[in-house]
């Protein structure tokens, strides 16, 4: 093939929109690279000073320029872990209710009510949390759980601003996401399979346990991973109720802090370069955490689509 034909062919196949649109995709790749580079560049000073002790250090004292990320890592871990467990339980129940129990005519309406929760800006949920969830934790929940106060997890006194309040708002915010995934997966279970189980005399719950739940498992997992990602990164609703104390406590009734919350709360007050750098480094840790979760989510989603 002569060069001329090659050029001719290239011109015939060339499409301006194809190149322009591919370019905007490549631009996104570059932007993400800049993103990661910028975070790493700005968090370098604190890692230079403290090394890996920055991650394992338990003291955070901006006055003395001592920075350790462990209180925030702990707070993010404990709040998101408990919230996701509660969310899984609630969302299976809610999805079962919407798909199997509620009348067919109401199904769309009920699921859109649940999806409405996602549309509420998180600062509004934080405002509500400050004025209603925090007093609820202080006055009601603490006394309900007082028989359990010998367990360290529920011990101590509380001002209401606590891990517990954060867990409550987080659970409320992320449950709709996993519910939506589970609900969609349950709806797409072939009716014949369910009818076959009913024909054998199975009850509704048994059909769910034997047919729907196993078939919906992968999609449910994808939804749960996404919900978890949302839980670790949620900022506003958490910063307004968690009490903002850079300490590590076992009791859920004690105040704490999360990675996202401390960035939002201290960023404008940070005066020294090292303090800003430490906050950006916390952002880098959170980014790494959420990227791992996201890669996991993408992997699971691919399995679901291949199914």
């Amino acid at each position: 093939m002569s060069i001329l034909t090659k050029v001719r062919k290239w011109f015939l196949r060339f499409d301006p929109l194809g190149s322009i649109s591919a370019f905007s995709g490549v631009f996104l790749v570059v932007l993400i690279a800049v993103f990661i580079a910028a975070l790493l560049y700005h968090s370098a000073p604190v890692f230079e000073k403290f090394g890996l002790n920055f991650i394992t250090g338990g003291t955070w004292n901006p006055m003395k320029d001592i920075y350790g990320a462990l209180p925030f890592i702990w707070g993010t871990f404990i709040t998101s872990a408990i919230a996701i467990v509660l969310a899984v339980v609630l969302s299976y129940g809610a999805a079962y209710f919407i798909v199997e129990i509620a009348p067919l005519k109401l199904r769309e309406f009920l699921s859109s009510i649940v999806e409405l929760i996602v549309a509420i800006p998180s600062v509004i949920i934080g405002l509500w949390g400050m004025f209603y969830v925090v007093p609820f934790v202080r006055d009601t929940l603490k006394s309900i759980l007082s028989p359990l106060s010998s367990i360290p997890l529920f011990g101590g006194t509380t001002s209401g601003y606590s891990y517990m309040a954060a867990i409550i708002v987080l659970t409320f915010m992320i449950t709709p996401i996993s519910t939506s995934f589970i609900k969609n997966a349950m709806e797409s279970v072939p009716i014949e399979l369910k009818e076959a189980a009913y024909a054998l005399g199975a009850t509704k719950y048994e059909v769910f346990r034997i047919v729907s739940r196993p078939l919906a498992r992968r999609s449910a997992l994808a939804g749960v991973v996404l919900a978890y990602g949302r839980a670790i990164g949620e900022t506003m609703a958490v910063v307004m109720v968690i009490g903002n104390s850079p300490t590590i406590s076992i009791s859920l009734f004690n105040p704490g802090y999360t990675l996202a919350a401390v960035i939002a709360n201290e960023f404008l007050e940070a005066t020294t370069t090292l303090h800003v750098s430490a906050l950006i480094a916390l952002g880098a840790i959170l980014l790494a955490w959420s990227l791992i979760v996201n890669i996991l989510a993408a992997f699971v989603l691919r399995l679901v689509r291949a199914q």
């Binding site: 490549v26 996104l28 993103f35 975070l39 990164g233 900022t235 960035i263 952002g283 980014l287 990227l291």
Partner: peptide
């Protein structure tokens, strides 16, 4: 390959906590 990378990237961007995007905007 490029399409796969971009597709994965879009999902990744959507999952980045918004506060970190704010920090990125701060740095640049």
């Amino acid at each position: 390959k490029l399409a796969q990378i971009i597709r994965a990237l879009i999902t990744t961007i959507a999952g980045i906590p918004s506060i970190i995007v704010g920090v990125f905007a701060y740095t640049i």
